[in-house]
């Protein structure tokens, strides 16, 4: 259970973020929608402790301030809309290449992709590889920022199937998505973010 209490971004004037309260049970999915610049990404970054915030964020009753930030982010992992790459080779970005290789086929990626240079990857391939990179660390919560924006329908289905499998196994997902059909397929509870405030839209429609 991820519990967010009065989370606000500090040192930022309008529109800012929060205060936001949100509960996300283990194995559940919530989606955040809203206009561009409403604070969707800012919320995910705040939960991952990537920006300075006030308020409390707890995972299974444990406050994130009681653990180091890297420990927290391994449990509650944020996947930015734009994936980041720091080495020349794709394989250099994966802690466990074996676990990563097993997932390549599941997302329609070439089996040799880990041996490729990053410069050869398309945006869609990067997006899927970044998801694999986060999944193999087995986080409890995934914060996904438009994870299928660059994917064709087939690849998108594969990503959704893999996510659904992990969610059934207990992963919690908070997803920013503009795709109402996608959030419905994932069975997400919908929240609207407007001017940095979260509005519960209720239900899963």
């Amino acid at each position: 259970m991820l519990s967010i209490r009065a989370l606000s971004r500090v040192g930022l004037t309008s529109p800012g973020l929060g205060p936001i309260d949100l509960q996300l049970a283990g194995g559940s999915v919530a989606a955040v929608t809203g206009a561009s610049g409403a604070g969707k990404s800012m919320l995910l970054r705040a939960i991952a402790d990537l920006d300075e915030c006030s308020g409390e964020v707890l995972l299974d009753g444990v406050n994130r301030d009681t653990m180091s930030a890297p420990q927290w982010r391994r449990r509650v992992t944020y996947l930015a809309a734009e994936s980041g790459w720091w080495a020349d080779g794709v394989g250099g970005h994966f802690s466990e290449t074996q676990a990563a290789s097993r997932l390549l086929g599941r997302l329609g990626l070439n089996d040799d992709a880990l041996g490729w240079p990053v410069s050869r990857l398309s945006t869609g391939e990067k997006q899927r590889l970044a998801l694999i990179r986060a999944l193999i660390q087995n986080p409890q919560v995934l914060l996904l920022d438009e994870p299928t924006s660059a994917l064709d329908p087939d690849s998108r289905t594969m990503v959704e199937d893999l996510l659904a499998e992990r969610i059934a196994a207990g992963l919690s997902v908070l997803i920013v998505s503009h795709d109402a059909a996608q959030t419905k397929r994932l069975g997400a509870r919908i929240y609207l973010i407007d001017g940095g405030r979260l509005v519960d839209n209720g239900g899963t429609t």
Binding site: A48, L50, R73, A80, E82, S83, G84, W86, R133
Partner: peptide, 22 residues
């Protein structure tokens, strides 16, 4: 320039020393 790459590592739980190493 490398903000996205550095933050990708931090988000994955790498510490700042590793994220800044390159």
């Amino acid at each position: 320039r490398e903000k996205v790459a550095v933050e990708a590592r931090l988000a994955l739980g790498h510490d700042r020393a590793s994220a800044f190493r390159p």
